[in-house]
């Protein structure tokens, strides 16, 4: 599994431009593989479920979370991190059963279940004794 890096030379795959004038951050992800599925855990603090878009297309998982300003009318006096949107894209090399993908966002953590297609699941061969 490799993360796709978009290059300018890819022509129509050139860097995506966004219309919102905010900083976009790359969220941290964990990726775990079990026999049946791939599980992606992503930290998206500040994203409400209705502001999260998860897509699976062309073997790519695309995660885009929008974060609304949460301190209107307050003065920012010290900053160790910035607040902005999240964007990340992974290329999934495994055959995934797209219809069964499940996504859950809880306490700012996205859990994405990508079930493997039946054809590639490891099969245990029964060994018969005579």
């Amino acid at each position: 599994m490799t993360e796709m890096i978009r290059k300018e030379s890819d022509g129509n795959l050139a860097t995506v431009e966004r219309t919102r004038n905010t900083t976009t951050y790359t969220p941290r992800f964990d990726i775990v593989e079990t026999e049946d599925e791939l599980i992606l855990y992503g930290d998206l603090p500040g994203v409400a479920p209705e502001n999260l878009e998860v897509r699976f297309e062309n073997e790519h998982v695309i995660v885009h979370g929008r974060v609304d300003a949460r301190h209107e009318g307050r003065e920012h006096i010290y900053a160790e991190y910035g607040i902005g949107d999240y964007y990340r894209e992974f290329r999934i090399n495994e055959a995934v059963d797209a219809a069964k993908i499940e996504a859950e966002l809880k306490d700012g953590v996205l859990t994405l279940h990508l079930p493997k297609a039946e054809a590639i699941k490891p099969k245990r061969i029964e060994v018969k004794s005579e």
Binding site: D43, L44, P45, G46, H71, G73, R74, E75, H76, I77, Y78, A79, E80, Y81, I83, K106, D107, G108, V109
Partner: peptide, 18 residues
């Protein structure tokens, strides 16, 4: 941490997903 203030309060914010 990020710090914000208004007239009455100081707000300390931290991202602690999960």
């Amino acid at each position: 941490l990020d710090l914000w203030q208004d007239q009455d309060n100081l707000y300390v914010e931290a991202e602690l997903p999960g």
